[in-house]
Amino acid sequence: MIYEEPRFLPGGDRYMLIEFGDEMNLELNFRGQDLANVVAEQKTKGVLETAPCFASTLIHYDPELISFADLKKEMASLIEGLRPADDIELPSRLFYFPTVYLDPWTKECVEDYIAKIAKKTPDPEYVAELNGLSGVDQLVRVHSGTEYWVASLGFWPGLPFTMPLDPRCRLVAPKYNPPRTWTPKGSVGMGGMSTAIYPEHLPGGYQVFGRTPVPIWDTEKRFPVFENSICLFRPGDRIRFVPCSIEEFEHVEAQVADGSYQYNLVEYQKFSVAQYKEWVAGIDETQRF
């Protein structure tokens, strides 16, 4: 559901969460991103920073410069003026990520969790079963069968929150209860309908079932793709996971270590929301790969 009026929710004395709706779709993500962009361009008084995500934008404000009530009024008026999503056309980079699905590293991590923290069905089997797939092989086929839209960055520097663009590849999964204390660097996993790549060895709540050797943030800027930012992605990028073998993983890992790795991305494409919606309308969403 997309709310008729956004909801303005307090977070302590310095934050406001603006919720635009209650589902995961591109339109809501554009609302969140567009509001953040407009706030940055206009330098709205009292706003220190924003964090847009799938269906919301978090505002960090200075209450000495603007009250909660005035911020709410100001944001409501900016939201009123946002462009309709159908008009949006933007350049969108596409990244290819070699990924070992059903890899030994996330398997070990899940087994460690099961042994020490809580019993559960191993993640790939669990996600396959929950989504009515025939097994883990189909999970790999479906998960790698679509481009993923980078909706925002967060949790850890550079971590992308993404959603599948092809409706036939939509999968859902609950988040861990309780969360894991560690996840291998480069793990690929999902929670809710979102897929993420873990930039580092980190705690986590997503179901994990793959691993990529390609770094997605780099404080030392060892590769040219990090020239403008130490975080690889920006909202509006797309990702494709390319299933690969452990041997290929190790080959790429060695190239990353010696600095010879070439990031695999293309930059000539534009993403049109209207064309995307037209394409989705013609697809039978119940079909799987």
Binding site: L58, G154, G191
Partner: peptide
């Protein structure tokens, strides 16, 4: 569980 969101 909620759709991923910004955390204060």
């Amino acid at each position: 569980n909620i759709i991923d969101q910004g955390y204060p």
